[in-house]
Deep mutational scan, measured.
Amino acid sequence: MAAGGDHGSPDSYRSPLASRYASPEMCFVFSDRYKFRTWRQLWLWLAEAEQTLGLPITDEQIQEMKSNLENIDFKMAAEEEKRLRHDVMAHVHTFGHCCPKAAGIIHLGATSCYVGDNTDLIILRNALDLLLPKLARVISRLADFAKERASLPTLGFTHFQPAQLTTVGKRCCLWIQDLCMDLQNLKRVRDDLRFRGVKGTTGTQASFLQLFEGDDHKVEQLDKMVTEKAGFKRAFIITGQTYTRKVDIEVLSVLASLGASVHKICTDIRLLANLKEMEEPFEKQQIGSSAMPYKRNPMRSERCCSLARHLMTLVMDPLQTASVQWFERTLDDSANRRICLAEAFLTADTILNTLQNISEGLVVYPKVIERRIRQELPFMATENIIMAMVKAGGSRQDCHEKIRVLSQQAASVVKQEGGDNDLIERIQVDAYFSPIHSQLDHLLDPSSFTGRASQQVQRFLEEEVYPLLKPYESVMKVKAELCL
Rank of each mutant, 00 (worst) to 15 (best):
D6K: 11
G8E: 15
S15P: 14
S19H: 13
R20Y: 00
Y21L: 02
A22T: 13
A22N: 15
S23E: 11
P24N: 13
M26Y: 00
V29C: 15
V29Q: 06
S31W: 03
S31G: 10
Y34P: 01
K35S: 06
K35P: 02
R37F: 10
W45M: 08
L46W: 00
L46Y: 05
A49S: 12
Q51G: 07
G54A: 13
T58W: 08
T58E: 14
T58Y: 10
E60Y: 10
Q61M: 10
Q61C: 09
Q61Y: 09
Q61H: 13
K66C: 10
I72E: 11
F74W: 09
M76T: 14
A77P: 09
E79L: 13
E79F: 14
E81T: 01
R83W: 10
R85S: 01
V92C: 12
T94I: 14
G96A: 10
A102D: 04
G104R: 11
I105M: 09
I106V: 12
H107G: 00
L108R: 01
S112W: 00
G116Y: 01
T119F: 07
I122V: 09
I122M: 11
I123V: 12
N126L: 05
L130M: 08
P133H: 13
P133C: 09
K134N: 14
L135T: 14
R141G: 15
L142W: 11
D144K: 15
F145V: 07
E148K: 09
E148N: 09
R149E: 10
A150D: 07
S151T: 11
S151K: 12
H159L: 02
Q161S: 02
T166H: 07
T167C: 01
V168F: 05
R171C: 01
C173Q: 04
C173Y: 01
I176E: 07
C180Q: 07
C180L: 11
M181D: 12
L183T: 13
Q184I: 14
K187F: 10
R190N: 08
R190M: 13
R194K: 11
G200L: 01
T204R: 00
Q205S: 15
A206K: 04
S207I: 07
F208P: 00
L209Q: 13
E213V: 14
D216F: 06
H217Q: 12
K218T: 08
L222A: 09
V226L: 15
A230Q: 02
A230I: 10
G231S: 09
F232N: 02
K233M: 14
T239D: 00
T239V: 07
T242P: 10
Y243L: 09
R245P: 01
K246S: 03
K246Y: 02
V251D: 01
L252I: 13
L255F: 11
L258N: 08
G259Q: 00
H263S: 09
T267K: 03
R270N: 02
R270D: 00
A273N: 10
A273S: 12
A273F: 14
A273H: 13
N274E: 08
E277A: 01
F282D: 10
E283T: 15
K284G: 14
K284V: 11
Q285S: 12
I287C: 11
G288I: 05
S289F: 01
P293E: 00
K295E: 04
N297V: 01
N297L: 03
C304Q: 07
L307Q: 15
L307S: 09
A308C: 14
R309N: 07
T313W: 10
L314T: 10
L314Y: 15
L314D: 04
V315I: 11
D317C: 08
D317I: 05
P318E: 01
Q320Y: 13
A322H: 10
A322E: 10
A322D: 05
S323W: 00
V324S: 09
V324K: 04
W326Y: 10
W326K: 02
E328K: 02
E328Y: 02
T330N: 05
D332F: 03
D333E: 03
A335P: 08
I339W: 01
E343W: 03
T347F: 13
I351E: 04
N353D: 10
E360D: 14
E360P: 03
L362C: 08
V364A: 05
V364S: 05
Y365I: 10
P366Q: 11
K367F: 03
R371Q: 04
R371E: 00
R372D: 02
I373P: 02
R374K: 15
R374E: 05
Q375S: 06
E376A: 05
E376G: 02
P378Q: 03
N384P: 12
V390E: 03
K391G: 14
G393I: 05
R396M: 03
Q397C: 05
C399D: 06
C399K: 03
K402P: 04
I403Y: 05
V405S: 12
A410Y: 04
S412I: 13
V413E: 14
V414G: 02
V414Q: 04
V414N: 03
K415G: 05
G419I: 06
N421W: 00
D422K: 10
D422M: 13
D422N: 09
I424F: 09
I424K: 14
E425V: 07
E425H: 15
R426Y: 09
Q428K: 12
Q428T: 14
Y432E: 09
F433N: 04
F433W: 05
I436L: 07
I436H: 03
H437Y: 08
S438D: 07
L440M: 08
D441F: 15
D441W: 07
D441E: 13
L443C: 06
L444P: 00
D445C: 12
S447D: 11
S447G: 12
S448M: 14
G451Q: 04
S454P: 12
Q455E: 12
Q456S: 07
Q456A: 08
V457Y: 04
V457D: 03
V457C: 08
V457K: 05
R459A: 12
F460D: 01
E464P: 05
V465P: 00
V465D: 02
V465Y: 03
Y466C: 12
Y466I: 13
S474N: 11
K479T: 14
K479W: 15
A480T: 15
E481N: 15
E481P: 15
L482M: 15
L482C: 15
